[in-house]
Amino acid sequence: MFQVLVNGIIVGGIYALITIGFNLIYSAVRFYHLAYGAVGILGAYLTYQIQKFIFETQGGGLITGFLFGLLISSIVTGMLGILIWKFLYRPLRKNGASNVSMIVASFGLLIILQNLIGLIFGQSAKTIRLSEVTTQGYEFLSASITKNQILILIVTLVSVFVFELFLHRTKIGTAIRAVGQNSQLAAVVGVKTEKVIYITFFIASFLSVLASSLIALEISLKPTYGLMLILKVIVASIIGGIGSMRGALVGGLMLGVAENFGAYYFGSQWQDTVAFGLLVIFLLVRPQGLFKK
């Protein structure tokens, strides 16, 4: 029973970690960047490739390879995020595209990225590991949790804390929110809106690689994961409140826990029904989510 709760928290932490970046982008540009999941997964594939290179040809350790790969691919993907905004999303915006248009365009981008990943890396699952041996998790109050899972939870909590502060207490954070609420007004007041959005996309994409690489340690990598993750992220952000950092955490956790309890009591085949049932309920009853933005 407690194990089920722990399972929900672990998986919820994973969802939350990706939702943070998604919400961050929403704060700045006010549309759903559906391709975000695929961007993160692409970055994770890069991490995998670099780690493989270091481990197999340079004689480096698995962990050093991973960290090195993580660093490089996060930066590269961060830049990719900026490019996506500058050359793909911004022209659409300038053309006067509506929010629904942006969602459709973003979905098109998701399909492109997902298939590019399939083309470049192949359809077989790729595994990233930190050690050659699978170890049993730590036993803690009759529940089991592995090192990697603890790491994910810690990174999630730290990220939520850091980004919450970032958005609400720093100049840049306030600038991001200002741009999101009214970019013209923000520009008038002297906020360099373009630069702010670049920074947002960079940070969010950077974070997505961190998140996806950690997740890949748990579940390996397949080209289809981008879509799978973003669907969960949407549910989590609707539950928690789109644009809110705290909401990302709570939404992700609620989703994870609901899914697992649903799986436990109704059977795992109903897991998706639970997730999307929650989505429908929240959209109908509390569309702004738990934490208003």
């Binding site: 793909l88 022209p91 659409l92 053309n95 595209a97 509506s98 248009s101 942006m102 459709v104 365009a105 979905f107 098109g108 981008l109 998701l110 399909i111 492109i112 997902q114 298939n115 590019l116 399939g118 083309l119």
Partner: peptide, 23 residues
Amino acid sequence: SFAAESNQIVYGIILFALMYWRP
């Protein structure tokens, strides 16, 4: 070896292009 993925990429491009040039 890449026909299948290219197919889907074309869809993605169509969607995107439509939104940009002719919504």
